[in-house]
């Protein structure tokens, strides 16, 4: 019976040849690992984060063969020949991706820990729909937990990046209104 193109006895290592951020990679890893672990531990691409490793937070999102997926739930044994894009792959040369620019300018990254997953999810959205509305942005990012921002500055940043990608001027960050000089004296 011919059914072992990728047979991997449990204690054996896995030969993994695949593409990461456009570059071919060929390595040998522990066969029980997930894509998340391979990226972080075997490739040193620690930009991809983890917050639960169970698919419950979105921090580990990457784009795999064009689809937004959670790298904590992709077994490395299923990765040979595939192509992954991580947060490290957003930047083209020294230039930041418009999403990165806008996340930085709009305060969308507070602690920055959910940011890689957010950026990747937002890229996946804008690649398909650069005219995404705020509602569509919220929907597309509904698998990414952020405990710092309350999401609103993230929505602002994705909207602004969409504009940049459409060739429109990016709006300045939305600021709170400031009331000055009033006091509580009595």
């Amino acid at each position: 019976m011919d059914l072992v193109p990728l047979t991997t006895p449990s204690r054996e290592k896995l030969r993994l040849a695949f593409t990461v951020n456009g570059e071919p990679r060929d390595l040998v890893v522990e066969s029980y690992k997930t894509l998340l672990e391979v990226l972080r531990e075997d490739l040193g691409l620690t930009g991809t984060k983890h917050g639960c490793e169970l698919g419950e937070c979105g921090a580990c999102a990457v784009i795999l063969d064009g689809e937004l997926v959670l790298s904590c739930l992709v077994a490395a044994v299923e990765c040979p020949g595939r192509s992954a894009t991580t947060v490290e792959g957003l930047r083209q040369g020294p230039e930041l991706h418009p999403l990165q620019q806008c996340f930085a300018d709009h305060g969308a990254a507070q602690c920055g820990y959910c940011t890689p997953g957010m950026l990747v999810a937002a890229k996946w959205l804008l690649d398909r729909n650069p005219r995404a509305t705020r509602g569509e942005i919220a929907e597309a990012l509904s698998g990414q937990i952020c405990r710092c921002t309350g999401y609103l500055q993230i929505f602002d940043a994705v909207e602004a990046a969409g504009r940049t990608l459409r060739g429109e001027p990016a709006p300045a960050p939305l600021l709170p209104s400031v009331h000055r000089g009033s006091t509580n004296g009595r």
Partner: peptide
């Protein structure tokens, strides 16, 4: 970090092969 336990992996290309493996 939570890790998968060790396992063996088969990747049949045909449904019949998968059924046979099971």
């Amino acid at each position: 970090m939570m890790r998968l336990p060790r396992f063996r992996y088969l990747a049949p290309r045909k449904l019949s092969e998968a059924a046979a493996a099971l």
